[in-house]
Design a binder for these strands. Structure first.
Length: 231
DNA sequence: AACTTATCCAACCGCCGCTAC
DNA sequence: AGTAGCGGCGGTTGGATAAGT
């Protein structure tokens, strides 16, 4: 660690300060609490450690599955992912991903790549036929290498997230892709987390950006809207 | 028991977007 | 329009601890 660990007394001072003044004005917290810490340290300590709604302990299987799915949808947007996991912080999710899931998934991908390499070998076209036909047909999904660049057709998808597309009514759908592990391709993105946790009780929900506001898929949807509007 | 290596996770850093002036 | 201040985010670091030799 670059700095120094928080003492019990510092935690107590910070807690008292937040309880008294709220957590809105982090630039004032060090002064109000009498702490020799910067605003960012205070905020982080509160959000990641002292907040009463923080859930401790191991991640449940359904939480892990949801993290994997959301990471495929959103990438490294930990705060968004954590916002969908009640009681978990962005730091928790990020650490869990880096320690547990990245290696696991990398191993899986390597295995799949090896398998794909074998498949590519089997279906590799004869050079002579390519030279003579010259026609460019859309690639079959089965034949796309994992890290290949998308064709123009593929790259014109309507969202920044490779596994999300938008239907005619503007609703976000999970694309048909077995690697995502979604049972029902075409399912609305907003239904994904509900499958795991149902509707949350507001009291038990922690969002990392506001700490205690309600769990809400609208944030995710509006993020996607912003992206689609910009096209 | 002593040492080395791997893993976990709290904390920091730098950057970005937003807002007020 | 430019800029300073702030909150927030993701990437990274490094100390503590567990596991292995």
């Amino acid at each position: 660690m670059g700095g120094f660990a928080w003492t019990e007394e510092e935690d107590h001072l910070l807690k008292k300060c937040i309880e008294r003044y709220g957590d809105g004005q982090w630039h004032r917290v060090p002064l109000l609490a009498g702490l020799n810490r910067c605003r960012k340290s205070c905020r982080l300590r509160w959000l990641n450690y002292l907040h009463p709604n923080i859930k401790r302990g191991n991640f449940a299987e359904e939480e892990v599955q949801l993290i994997i799915k959301l990471h495929k949808l959103l990438g490294n947007r930990w705060s968004l992912i954590a916002g969908r996991l009640p009681g978990r912080t962005a730091n928790d999710v990020k650490n869990y991903w880096n320690c547990h899931l990245r290696k696991k998934l990398n191993a899986q991908e390597t295995e799949e790549e090896d398998q794909n390499a074998i498949n590519v070998e089997i279906i590799r076209p004869q050079p002579r036929s390519i030279a003579t036909t010259g026609s460019m047909k859309p690639r079959s999904p089965d034949h796309i290498a994992p890290n290949s660049q998308p064709t123009i057709e593929e790259s014109s998808m309507s969202t920044p997230f490779p596994y999300v597309e938008v239907d005619q009514r503007g609703k976000e759908l999970v694309k048909a892709d077995s690697s995502l592990g979604v049972d029902e391709p075409g399912k609305f993105v907003s239904d994904l987390a509900t499958d795991h946790f149902g509707q949350f009780d507001e009291v038990n929900v922690l969002r990392t950006d506001e700490c205690c506001s309600k769990w809400d898929w609208d944030d995710l949807i509006s993020d996607m809207d912003l992206w689609t509007d910009s096209l």
